[in-house]
């Protein structure tokens, strides 16, 4: 029982970057844009965040810089798909390839440098509750920020006028355009928001989760975040559930490796990727696709005059 709050806390730490990146991509995809560059934006956020934190000796500033770096990369994507109407799948892939290289260049001088932990935030009174107090109400500030982001995205998409417009644009850009909605402008906001969150998720990885920078450290998390968005099928709560489930699998797999249960470690390391496929399969078999993808997802938008 003494281990439980500790284990729960590590589950939340492992899940938070997935959750943040997936929330961002969820908004982007609701607006009808498929950005496969999450992995690239995430790792650039991780490298930039770490480098900025070391240079300014402020982890908070590093996290901010990481988020902005992710957004900067998403601006390139926005320019391509909104102005040039390029193929979104190929452009997203290009963003990921470019991001992996760029992150390597940025992080070059920072490999192996350690970084101190950010002091945890304790919610007064609530953090005194046994088990849950230590697991949920004591954490880094980005963890609490991610909780606020869940609420913000759910509220913003479902309860605000802008959210309604954003979903309308995603569902049918042709109709939205005919109604006089600024399709490209709304999509620009959604893409930049997705980039900001992917960068934030990356900075969380290098500054809070591992607390060092190593090349390729995002290790497919951006792709898992993309799968989580599919898994969510348009519902934010399912996205949150999926992210914490994946955090749980990641931590369980690490414990199993440490506990040497006889399986080769590579098989356990492959679990998150196999589980991603299994989750998509389960979704399809159970027929719980939810609202599904936005109607105009991934299609280039070239308005007629």
């Amino acid at each position: 029982m003494e281990m439980l709050p500790f284990i729960l806390a590590t589950v939340f730490t492992a899940a938070t970057p997935l959750l943040i990146a997936a929330l961002g991509e969820h908004v982007t995809e609701r607006a009808g844009v498929l950005n496969l560059g999450v992995e690239g934006m995430m790792i650039v956020g991780a490298a930039t965040g770490f480098a900025a934190a070391v240079l300014t000796d402020s982890s908070v500033f590093g996290i901010l810089a990481g988020a902005l770096a992710g957004m900067a990369l998403s601006a390139v994507f926005a320019l391509m798909v909104l102005v040039f109407a390029t193929n979104q799948v190929a452009t997203g892939l290009a963003l990921t390839i470019m991001g992996l290289g760029l992150a390597g260049l940025i992080g070059q001088g920072f490999v192996g440098q350690p970084r101190a932990a950010i002091p945890p935030v304790k919610i007064p009174l609530l953090s005194e509750i046994p088990v849950l107090g230590k697991a949920i109400f004591t954490g880094d500030f980005v963890f609490f920020l991610s909780l606020a982001l869940i609420a913000f995205v759910a509220w913003g998409l479902n309860r605000t006028r802008f959210g309604l417009l954003l979903r309308a644009v995603g569902e049918s850009h042709g109709s939205a355009h005919a109604l006089g909605l600024p399709v490209k402008r709304i999509r620009l906001v959604a893409i930049l928001f997705g980039g900001l969150l992917a960068g934030l998720a990356g900075a969380y990885l290098s500054l809070i989760y591992t607390r060092f920078w190593s090349p390729g450290m995002s290790a497919g998390r951006g792709w898992i975040a993309l799968a989580l968005v599919v898994f969510a099928g348009g519902h934010v709560w399912r996205l949150v559930l999926g992210a914490y489930l994946f955090g749980g699998i990641t931590v369980a797999q690490l414990h199993a490796q440490a506990g040497a249960i006889g399986l080769p470690s590579q098989f356990l390391s492959a679990l998150p990727y196999l589980m991603t496929i299994a989750a998509l399969l389960f979704l399809s078999i159970s027929g719980r696709k939810g609202a599904g993808a936005a109607g105009s997802l991934g299609q280039p938008f070239v308005p007629e005059r």
């Binding site: 390139v76 391509m80 390029t86 892939l93 290009a94 963003l95 470019m98 760029l102 260049l105």
Partner: peptide, 15 residues
């Protein structure tokens, strides 16, 4: 990594 970055850039330019 410079080459990797360049490859991504090239794909963007091609698109």
């Amino acid at each position: 990594d410079l080459t990797r970055f360049f490859m991504g850039l090239l794909l963007i330019a091609v698109l």
